[in-house]
Design a protein around this nucleic acid. Structure first.
Ligand SMILES: [Mn+2]
Ligand SMILES: [Mn+2]
Ligand SMILES: [Mn+2]
Ligand SMILES: [Mn+2]
Lengths: 229, 229
DNA sequence: TAAACTTATTAGGTGAGCCAAAATAGGAGG
DNA sequence: CCTCCTATTTTGGCTCACCTAATAAGTTTA
């Protein structure tokens, strides 16, 4: 059917308002969104034409069967996103609410379903709660970048993994002090842009352009240079 | 500065294209977004005026310092969202990519930062990997609704918790067989809408409207009825 | 070097989603 | 039933982000 974000929000708000007010009118939506009444009237007209709401002039607003269905689809996404942000990531009330109400319109069916499963799992599995606690404790203390050399999945590229012509930004130099100093003396400082300009047959040595000049290093050394991809 | 979604996408795409192509031109962006060339020209003009890109007529496109900064801000959100969807939720490549590139524009700073920490935690903590595996295994087999009575956090409301005038949808009836049968014979089936129309002093009994008629039940029984809020 | 092709720009439009101001309808009280 | 006041609708306008068609610049190619 292809509803726009704003149409979805109107439907959702009517759905929520009806839970509390029995009768929903233009004014209620105006107040909820802090929007001009003219805009709401216009929107209701459009939704009526699409058979999603019933609204007679100067009267009450109601969702049709179809409108109710759409509203519920949107609201279920809102809820799960809110719960994930608020209860798992511990995002503040306000940001959880806002982010959820934006993301609800764009999240794919698959992501939505997987997120439902994830929350479900976290809720049911007893082992998880302690781990979640651990995470929640760590949240305040930890630095958190997801950009250093963590586990298996989600690891950053290393310089030797860049292909010919590719560019990257140096993130971190590893290895022993001596090597680190040598590399850094050559100009390889975190934040610097590099571009691979030549690679020998077996990937060794590697020639790159950095700060305007060319530099050649051994593959073994390149492995110590983390690249922000 | 307030960049629109489309401006952010243009900046991000220029940033990404420059990693592979050194020179970015209108045509590259046209191909990337499958959009009319006129639209891209127009967008570059607007971005130039905002001092985010440099672009002389018929020439190459470059990010300014400011543009680079914005592009990186957007792209870092893209990456973390992608990683979360793809590697933690196991969402397909395509949906992870699309969802990430939509959400990157709307996620709050706080949610972004918490998500980074979360991914970081999952990556670093060894206990988590096994648990994550467990989740990944469960993903195919489980039903998953996040809407039944799970743990402490994220629990659903029960009928007795609805306030006067509020409405809800029956999700599930709990309690022993006999009670369940009795309630369901009265019309309380999952999916049914209920609305609280009267509540006695101490919340007992509760009168509700359901399928057009009124029904009164004891608070003790109402506790067994889960409501989708 | 002029025609042919590719790429980019200009000009003129469209629809979504908002707004302010003016016009109207409905309801409450005299 | 007339008068106010509030809620709603109508009207006309605006910005954003697209589009098509016409034109112009740049690049090959014969
Ligand atoms: Mn929303
Ligand atoms: Mn919402
Ligand atoms: Mn994007
Ligand atoms: Mn993106």
């Amino acid at each position: 059917m292809e509803l726009t974000k704003s149409m979805e929000d109107y439907l959702e708000s009517i759905y929520i308002l009806k839970k509390q007010k029995r009768y929903v009118r233009i004014k209620d939506i105006v107040e909820k969104f802090n929007i001009a009444a003219a805009s709401v009237t216009e929107a209701m007209l459009k939704l009526s034409k699409k058979n999603l709401v019933e609204h007679e002039k100067y009267g009450y607003i109601d969702l049709t069967e179809k409108g109710m269905e759409e509203a519920r689809r949107v609201y279920s996404r809102h809820k799960i996103l809110y719960k994930f942000l608020k209860n798992i990531l511990l995002v503040s009330e306000g940001n959880s609410e806002n982010d959820a109400c934006e993301m609800e319109h764009i999240i794919s069916k698959e992501s939505y379903e997987k997120l439902v499963k994830f929350c479900d799992f976290v809720n049911k599995d007893t082992d998880t709660s302690s781990l979640l606690d651990k995470f929640h404790n760590s949240i305040d203390s930890k630095e958190g970048s997801c950009n250093d050399n963590g586990g298996d999945k989600m690891k950053n590229k290393r310089l030797n993994e860049l292909k010919l012509g590719e560019t990257g930004i140096i993130l971190k130099i590893e290895g022993d002090k001596k090597l680190r100093k040598r590399l850094m003396d050559m100009g390889m400082l975190p934040g610097t842009d590099v571009k691979i300009v030549k690679v020998a047959p077996l990937g060794d040595p590697i020639e790159m352009k950095i700060k305007g000049f060319h530099l050649t290093i051994r593959k073994e050394d390149a492995k110590n240079i983390l690249i922000e991809d």
